[in-house]
Amino acid sequence: MKPGLPERVRGLKATLWTLIVPPTVWAAHFLFAYLWVSVQCAKTGGFSRFPLVFWGGTALALVVILASGIIALVQSCTPGTAPPHEHGTDSDRLRFIAYSTMLLSGLSFVAVVFTALPVLFIGDCR
């Protein structure tokens, strides 16, 4: 019998590499947004009516950050001792990194939304 998705997610190894995924995705979206705006302003002097490429990139960034946060949420709920996770056990280390990743995912999600808001509310490049 195949294990379900939560069991497979709990089996993933949480490392510092998983911790930097959400802020890296936000930074890439930030760079993408500024490059997109500079190209649009240089070509047309404003944004297109509905910038499909920009919203597609924003949606992709939000989905990756949300998936990272959900994986971290499942990993942080592994059974063990109550917080604070200050001992050097593998379970405490996993839950600490997962909880930190979950918090960074929330911060990065909000940052991507705030990076995308000017395109929604501002229509020209003045």
Rank of each mutant, 00 (worst) to 15 (best):
M1D: 13
M1C: 12
K2E: 13
P3E: 08
G4D: 11
P6T: 02
P6V: 03
R8L: 12
R8D: 02
V9L: 09
R10E: 03
G11V: 00
L12C: 05
A14F: 02
T15C: 04
T15V: 09
L16W: 11
T18C: 02
T18G: 05
L19I: 06
V21T: 02
V25G: 01
W26V: 00
H29W: 05
F32Q: 03
Y34G: 09
L35D: 09
W36F: 14
V37L: 15
V37N: 10
S38Y: 09
V39Q: 11
V39T: 10
C41I: 06
A42G: 12
K43S: 13
K43T: 14
G45P: 05
G45T: 00
F47Q: 05
F47P: 04
F47L: 15
F47T: 06
F47H: 09
S48D: 15
S48Q: 13
R49Y: 13
R49N: 14
F54E: 02
F54G: 01
F54Y: 09
W55F: 12
G56C: 10
G56F: 08
A59P: 03
V64R: 01
I65S: 00
I65C: 01
L66W: 03
A67C: 13
S68F: 00
I70E: 04
I71T: 05
L73Q: 05
L73H: 07
V74S: 00
Q75P: 02
Q75M: 06
Q75L: 02
C77R: 14
C77W: 11
T78A: 12
P79W: 06
P79M: 07
P83S: 06
P83G: 09
P83L: 11
P84V: 07
E86Y: 12
E86D: 15
H87Q: 15
G88T: 09
D90W: 08
D90R: 10
S91L: 14
S91I: 15
D92P: 03
D92E: 15
F96N: 04
L103D: 06
L104A: 02
G106F: 05
F109P: 01
A111R: 01
T115S: 10
P118A: 11
P118Q: 11
V119W: 07
V119C: 09
L120D: 10
L120M: 12
I122W: 12
I122Q: 11
I122M: 15
G123S: 15
G123M: 14
D124Q: 13
C125T: 08
